[in-house]
């Protein structure tokens, strides 16, 4: 049984801070629909005995020791300069952004 899945493309776009025209939203809506219908084929399988999988890759993840291994030849000044090098706005080592208050 295939249910029609409704997806609010406009809201998804807003959450991703993307802006689209109405025509574009229509195109995405159709495409998203197709993706979801494709994925929903999984619902047709008998999966009660299958454990949910968080990653398709075999685990476990590797851990690193709590120590500094990076090349510490970098001075704080050089690190700071590197950090803000491509920022649209920076001042005294800070990134500068438009004020946002929640």
């Amino acid at each position: 049984m295939k249910e029609k899945i409704n997806i609010d493309v406009k809201k998804v776009a807003e959450l991703a801070r993307l802006e689209f025209s109405d025509d574009e939203l229509k195109v995405f809506s159709t495409q998203f629909q197709a993706i979801l219908e494709y994925i929903s084929q999984i619902d047709e399988l008998e999966l009660d005995d299958v454990e949910p999988m968080a990653s398709p890759l075999p685990g476990p993840q590797r851990l690193r020791p709590d120590s500094q291994e990076k090349n510490t030849a970098d001075t704080p000044e050089a690190t700071q300069k590197m950090a803000v090098a491509n920022a649209p706005g920076s001042m005294e080592g800070y990134f500068v952004v438009p004020k946002v208050i929640e």
């Binding site: 950090a83 706005g89 001042m91 080592g93 800070y94 990134f95 500068v96 952004v97 438009p98 004020k99 946002v100 208050i101």
Partner: peptide, 12 residues
């Protein structure tokens, strides 16, 4: 850090 001129400073 919020400034009075409509900008904020970000420190990571």
């Amino acid at each position: 850090m919020h400034n009075h001129d409509g900008t904020s400073f970000v420190d990571f």
